[in-house]
């Protein structure tokens, strides 16, 4: 396929030709966060296995997760989780046959884009504020 340059037929345009829209970005981000969450479950397994292994193994998890880079990854993971979750709820709404008209598509898209960062900040504020959390 890649060897054939310029096929003698019209081809459907690929993504770079379209104007970027919010719904398009959300669709791409839904898949991207899905893949990121997939890879990140290795961290969940590491955390649980370390807890099951003993204090020394767990100390390493605590060291990495409290370092700036660990916090950064976990912060990103929190957002990815909420973004994917909101995207999933959006699909559940569509599954009922509702919300397909352009007006509602745009409204739901804005909510889906707006809520996850708010939820992420809320969760991290709660984690820092919660008594005994630090």
């Amino acid at each position: 396929m890649s060897e054939q340059s310029k096929p003698a037929r019209p081809l459907s345009p690929h993504i770079q030709i379209y104007r970027w829209t919010l719904t398009m970005m959300l669709s791409i981000l839904h898949r991207a966060t899905g893949v990121a969450l997939y890879a990140g479950t290795a961290l969940l397994a590491w955390w649980l296995l370390a807890a099951a292994s003993g204090p020394d193994a767990y100390a390493l998890v605590q060291e990495v997760s409290s370092a700036w880079y660990g916090r950064l990854v976990l912060f990103g993971y929190t957002w990815g989780l909420f973004h994917h979750m909101m995207g999933g709820i959006r699909h559940f709404i569509w599954d009922t046959g509702r919300g397909f008209d352009l007006k509602h598509v745009e409204i739901i898209a804005r909510i889906t884009a707006f809520l996850p960062p708010v939820m992420t900040l809320g969760v991290w504020l709660a984690a820092y504020i919660y008594p005994g959390a630090l």
Binding site: P55, Y58, A59, L81, G88, V123, A127, Y130, L134
Partner: peptide
């Protein structure tokens, strides 16, 4: 599984918030 993941993940996030600074 998507439906099940919503409350289950909320639980995990909540547990991690409460135990963010917990020792071993």
């Amino acid at each position: 599984t998507a439906l099940a993941n919503i409350p289950l993940m909320m639980f995990l996030v909540g547990a991690l918030v409460v135990h963010a600074g917990s020792d071993y």
